[in-house]
Design a protein around this nucleic acid. Sequence first.
DNA 1: TGTCAAATGATAATGATTATCATGACAATG
DNA 2: CATTGTCATGATAATCATTATCATTTGACA
Lengths: 145, 145
Amino acid sequence: MEQRIDRIKKQLHSQSYKLTPQREATVRVLLEHEDDHLSAEDVYMLVKEKYPEIGLATVYRTLELLTELKVVDKINFGDGVSRYDLRQEGADHFHHHLVCLECGAVDEIQEDLLGDVEKIVEKRWNFEIKDHRLTFHGICYRCRT
Amino acid sequence: MEQRIDRIKKQLHSQSYKLTPQREATVRVLLEHEDDHLSAEDVYMLVKEKYPEIGLATVYRTLELLTELKVVDKINFGDGVSRYDLRQEGADHFHHHLVCLECGAVDEIQEDLLGDVEKIVEKRWNFEIKDHRLTFHGICYRCRT
DNA sequence: TGTCAAATGATAATGATTATCATGACAATG
DNA sequence: CATTGTCATGATAATCATTATCATTTGACA
């Protein structure tokens, strides 16, 4: 935990941003909820518990900043809100998601399943891939009875 | 064109919806811009040319209806708006997208590249896939010089 | 023709996100 | 130290896409 915060701090400094207490509190919330897919409002509520004076705008700004630095990814599952998902450290690709149409759960797939597909796309469409988003919609193992 | 409209009409009727003039005008716009990824506002502007009395709400309602019937797909590329993309007739999967980070162009891949990946996901995660979304972000062939 | 449900258009309401702006923290400088 | 300047913050207003409301219209059918 502390090491990860330290690395994020360095990353901020390298772009001459500071790790203010508000930003640190926000990052901690994200780390403590790594498996969730929190909206800005969700993050705001959780940060308020440890830093009650924080404002919603600051949370939005921090999340935007972290997105810029590729510490988190901003994703959208089609309900009207953006969600923020911590990137795996050192991962060279963005993980995939399984969205259950039954119960709404969102599970993650950390493995990179797109290696071959990406080769084909790069070659056949002459497209230089920088990132990808892959989401499957269906019925999760819990709801399959 | 006329045949496709006819089939959409039948599809609507099968769920006891009507193909009203407003809905038909909207569908025509979508067919005429099959390669684009129009927002609701875009569609509204274009429909107004052939049906000036139409209201924005009706366009939204029609797009929602068409999404429900799986005639179109509602997609989101991370700018703040939903876009509507006509499904290929008879396609059992939703096509993929290539979003250029340089020029913003959105190209489509109609081929299904995920067959093998889906088999793995179904088996290993015990997840019953109903649909998928796959978008690559990178540099398109036009911007690669 | 009269009836009724569905559809429409105008517009108000909502809700997420962004912009604004005065204030505060803090580092660098004189 | 006092001063200056920059960046960050918090409160709140503004924006913008989307949804809800509601009176009116349409068209099918009795």
